[in-house]
Computed example of a mutant assay.
Amino acid sequence: MTEDEAVDEDELLTIGVFAARARLSAKALRLYDRLGVLSPAHVDEVSGYRYYRPAQIERARLVALLRQLDMPLARIAEVVEAPDAVAAAGLLDAYWADVESRFAGQRTLAEYLRGRLSGRSSEMYGKFVVETVDLPEQVVITETRHVLAGELPAWIGSALGRLEYGARECGGIVGAPFVVYHSDVSMESDGPAEACVPVADEAAARAWVEKQGRAHAVKVRVEPAQRVAYTRITKAQVAHPQILAAFEAVEEWLPGQGLRMAGPCREIYFADWDAAGPEDEVCDVAFPVG
Rank of each mutant, 00 (worst) to 15 (best):
V130P: 05
S158P: 01
Y95L: 04
A20P: 04
A205F: 06
A207S: 12
G115K: 04
V86H: 07
R102C: 00
D184Q: 14
Y32S: 00
V79K: 08
G48Q: 07
A97H: 13
V199Y: 12
Y230W: 07
E267M: 02
C170S: 14
A26C: 10
K27S: 11
F287N: 02
E223K: 15
Q212M: 14
R162N: 15
E81F: 06
C196E: 01
L24K: 08
I243D: 04
R23T: 14
G90I: 07
F178H: 13
R67A: 06
I141A: 00
A64M: 07
S25R: 15
R162P: 03
R21G: 02
R260L: 00
Y51P: 03
E5P: 05
E210R: 15
G126K: 02
V289W: 10
K27G: 02
D134A: 13
V86P: 00
A276S: 14
E45K: 15
L66P: 01
V7P: 11
I156N: 01
A154C: 03
L12N: 08
A159V: 06
A154M: 11
R162Y: 15
M261L: 05
A286L: 04
V282Q: 03
G175W: 11
L160Q: 09
A94P: 03
L31F: 10
R260P: 00
V220Q: 05
I243V: 13
V43A: 03
A236H: 11
H216Q: 08
R145H: 06
L65Q: 14
R67G: 06
P288V: 06
A239L: 06
A275L: 10
E58F: 12
V250W: 01
R30Y: 11
V222E: 05
R221T: 07
L244C: 08
R162V: 12
A204E: 02
V129L: 10
S47N: 07
V220P: 07
